[in-house]
């Protein structure tokens, strides 16, 4: 599992530019898939199984894009001005390193601040790629990059720049690998452009037209020093989402997940997230509505270049998913 997480995290795939990560995931899932399809927006849809009696068409979605940067301007002096792809928080930017898709590397810094207790805005920041003029600058307007920071193994806990959401991609791949049989028609979706407004899952849900939706994504935690009020903690199991600021999970789906986890004694915790949302939001709103829930991977320092997850939580999530989709579903 750890090797898979590392492999997926180290690939660059900012929102809208998911080619490389899509190819890598495709390679991983090919041995287990009935069919694989890439839609016009770049979503990867992996189908497995047929609907048998009492079975449903179940969509299981994890976005594969990550936050990143996009070049907006190159100054006469060769410094690169940039915008964000997704919520790259300004307080994590100073001294971060970025890797552009064309291989160029750079360091982020900012104009001097009057007051060093204040965070520089992204407009005050720039990327130094070692150039001294637009002519010798190896990137141009529109080039995109991701944050660069090596994968770090801390035991059961691991850190990387793209745990959001490659950890969930790993969960989906592992679930697909371990799945023995299911009465359902399963569609594993690796969606694009979640970080820039949950876009890929909109069109994919429309195309798939599922009876039931499950999103897998990371969530914040409340177990770090002076953390904001939140009940979720690292290592305490798969987090079953009740709601976040973008949507309310279908109460029938929440109950099904909770009871399944309890019955199978799978480590789990309940999640209420005050800020943020996932693919589940748009799956629920698709067509005439889809009962939808979400399983979350507890993650510290979300949207920083060093996001930390606990591999045990990923394993619990795989176990829970296997139980959920491995048998008949009764929503009540």
């Amino acid at each position: 599992m750890k090797e898979l997480i590392q492999k997926l995290c180290e690939i660059s795939g900012p929102s809208g530019y998911e080619n490389n990560i899509r190819e890598a995931i495709k390679k991983e899932v090919t041995p287990y898939a009935d069919s694989i399809e890439v839609d016009p927006l770049g979503n990867l849809m992996v189908r497995k199984g047929k609907k048998t009696e009492g079975g449903l068409r179940i969509l299981i979605s994890a976005h594969m894009d990550e936050i990143g940067v996009i070049v907006t301007h190159v100054e006469k002096t060769g410094f690169v001005r940039f915008g964000n792809l997704g919520a790259a928080f300004p307080w994590y930017l100073p001294a971060s390193r970025v890797l552009f898709l064309n291989g160029t590397r750079g360091v982020i810094n900012s104009e001097p601040r009057e007051d060093n207790t204040k965070v520089s805005t992204i407009d005050q920041s720039y990327i130094d790629v070692g150039a001294s003029s637009p002519e010798d600058c190896p990137v141009k307007i529109g080039d995109v990059g991701v944050f660069e920071r090596p994968f770090m193994d801390m035991g059961t806990r691991v850190a990387s720049k793209a745990m959001d959401n490659r950890s969930s991609c790993a969960v989906l791949i592992e679930t697909l690998r371990q799945l023995k049989k299911s009465p359902h028609e399963l569609v594993f979706l690796f969606s694009v452009q979640e970080e820039v407004g949950i876009r890929g899952a909109v069109t994919a849900s429309y195309a798939i037209d599922p009876d039931l939706g499950i999103a897998v994504d990371v969530t914040s935690v409340g177990d770090t020093p002076s953390a904001k009020q939140m009940e979720v903690g690292l290592g305490k199991g798969a987090a079953i989402k009740i709601r976040d600021s973008g949507m309310l999970c279908d109460p029938r789906v929440v109950r099904w997940m909770r009871e399944t986890a309890e019955k199978a004694s799978i480590p789990h915790q309940m999640e209420i997230l005050r800020q943020g949302s996932t693919d589940a939001y748009v799956i629920q709103t698709s067509r005439s509505g889809v009962p939808t829930g979400a399983i979350s991977i507890p993650c510290r320092y979300v949207h920083s270049p060093s996001e930390v997850v606990d591999v045990k939580d990923l394993e619990s999530s795989v176990q829970l998913l296997l139980k959920l989709i491995g048998g008949p579903v009764q929503l009540k």
Binding site: M247, L248, G289
Partner: peptide, 15 residues
């Protein structure tokens, strides 16, 4: 869910 996401009206209108 009008007070949250308008998802009820959105999906009923579609149906």
């Amino acid at each position: 869910q009008e007070e949250e996401t308008l998802v009820g009206a959105r999906t009923s209108a579609y149906e």
